[in-house]
Design a protein around this nucleic acid. Sequence first.
DNA 1: TGGAGTGACCGTAACGGTCAAGAACCAATT
DNA 2: AATTGGTTCTTGACCGTTACGGTCACTCCA
Lengths: 362, 362
Amino acid sequence: MHVRRPATLASLAAELGVSRTTVSNAYNRPDQLSPELRRRVLETARRLGYPGPDPVARSLRTRKAGAVGLLLTENLSYAFRDPAAVGFLEGLALACEDAGQGLLLVPANPEREDVAAVHRAGVDGFVVYSVPDDDPHLAAVLERPVPTVVCDQPELDTVDRVGIDDRAAITQVADHLIELGHRRVGVVCMRLARDRNDDFVNAERQHNAHFHVQRARLEALATAFTSANVDWTTIPVVERFDHNIASGASAAAQLLDRDPQVTALICTSDILALGALAEARRRGLRVPQDLTITGFDGIQESERAGLTTVRQPVLEKGRAAGKLLVNAADHNRPRTVTLSTELVIGTTSAPPRITEERWFGP
Amino acid sequence: MHVRRPATLASLAAELGVSRTTVSNAYNRPDQLSPELRRRVLETARRLGYPGPDPVARSLRTRKAGAVGLLLTENLSYAFRDPAAVGFLEGLALACEDAGQGLLLVPANPEREDVAAVHRAGVDGFVVYSVPDDDPHLAAVLERPVPTVVCDQPELDTVDRVGIDDRAAITQVADHLIELGHRRVGVVCMRLARDRNDDFVNAERQHNAHFHVQRARLEALATAFTSANVDWTTIPVVERFDHNIASGASAAAQLLDRDPQVTALICTSDILALGALAEARRRGLRVPQDLTITGFDGIQESERAGLTTVRQPVLEKGRAAGKLLVNAADHNRPRTVTLSTELVIGTTSAPPRITEERWFGP
DNA sequence: TGGAGTGACCGTAACGGTCAAGAACCAATT
DNA sequence: AATTGGTTCTTGACCGTTACGGTCACTCCA
């Protein structure tokens, strides 16, 4: 018998000559046994090296894992380097901590379409953050019989949702630029689908974009500029798969090379906008005199840079998602939390430089 | 029978008239049954709404949770706002992803000493990042019968360890300053223990510090300055519990108020140093002409600020911790990974302003 | 024709707990 | 003496799966 099998509740109980339940109670319900016996139990546990009830076995029996899964298909490095994503993570982690829940980062590498990690995750619920709407991991999550909250995703009729009004938010940006007099603009956006396309985006690809947030913003921009009598099809849209400053810079470069006449660059994220700023600086373009640049998110770095952008409450977004999940009981219809945003007018937007015939003024 | 109990492997097997093993195999070992039967199994599963094998039950049986726990007692908000911590997290997450392991953030709020979360965590191992060495959560982790890696912690004879040579690293800073001619310096450090002490630190508290990293750095500084014939007991050390820029600023203020003659502020983190820079600016002190300021970590913001600091590979630290944990098999004695650091001399350090009698020159 | 080999499937025994219900005991009340 | 109520502890079922060690039918080859 001395195989040095690790001690279990049962072996402890046997050693003590009490029932397993009693040992269990010693850990979980101290009021259910005499202090004296409890002391003996714990002491014997220490002597036998029993580390306390096995968490997995407990989870199986109680049907609670005590953790929330986070699915984030974006490349992990980009997630941790994007202040907006980190802010979301922080909010979510705080909400989980408040509820005493763990937060499990599900290893969903977008490269290999291995959905097994989603199946293997022992969690009581999922938060899905900004993944393409045709992502197999997302599908796998939806098949799991646990409550789920999606964030920055299209509405689904089975799960809760947290997000902002992307259309309204970016429309404010567009209106701001239109009012300033910009008509010939360019757009730099994040990736629109799971395949890489570091290039201009045609109408079809815009329309079929699988990243809800990006699609919504592009659509709203199209609407806004169309209303201002600008033919949206003439507006160049450049896409970047990677989300970092270098990408923003190269996208801006590609756009300015093709159409040096643009007076404003609308970027769908601050990170990209910061890259665009760098590229403008590199070219000797003064911002905002020669070129207006706008972002989206309202991260701290952009504040420092004076970027005109849309501030969205990323931390609150994470927190809201966590809270929805934690009290995911007794509500039959899916809930939606829409957080408010704010247009922040910085020092990177101004009326276009007056050249040739282009000047329409408000 | 129509209680709408969720389907299980067993009920599926019963419905199909096959054994549970076969259903299990349909999911886990497709080569163990005929494609035809497998198709039938999966189809029936879909029909009955069976979501696939329960991850918790599987974990219990296989004795694998497929996840790594991260214990980080630091207030979560500070963790997510400290670029060094985020970098560590990124590296760790990457290592986990590579290994197909999840990463569970254990909800260990330092306020309430509730260790239950550690017991509840269904993980195959723990990474402990920079917690006080008398932290009850750490003790709880060490009692769990799973491999553990500590990071920026004192060596323990039972677990693996990842870190840098804090003494050598800060000694480089000290030597740099001493060589520049600084003799009258001040130190701003992060919290030294679990209790809050936003004030000067006496010798005893320095000696008893429960944060290994901070203690090591202070000790090394003491050694270095003592070697340069500076009486360490005369050097003011200010501690801050919260780790953010405001704390650095207020600490610098407190120090400069008490001893306006100091020619250099040694901060034990870049965040604190950035705060000190802000405070110096606020006071109209020119850096480095009037005041030298140094940091520690080598975060990006400090690079932008030209801070003299020690660069440490935070991402690699996380990655190393993850790797140690993933192949934590077959090694009897605990392993230690010590990563290298680099003194980065920026534009915030220079010889002291020459006043009165104080000028010793090299 | 008999034996080895192979593919497909099965039965049993864990895995390590928690839970609901009840038994045994004792003191206090009726 | 019977009843009540409260502790304290036990019993037996159950959580949903996979590991292990088979069985069984069939093919292949000498």
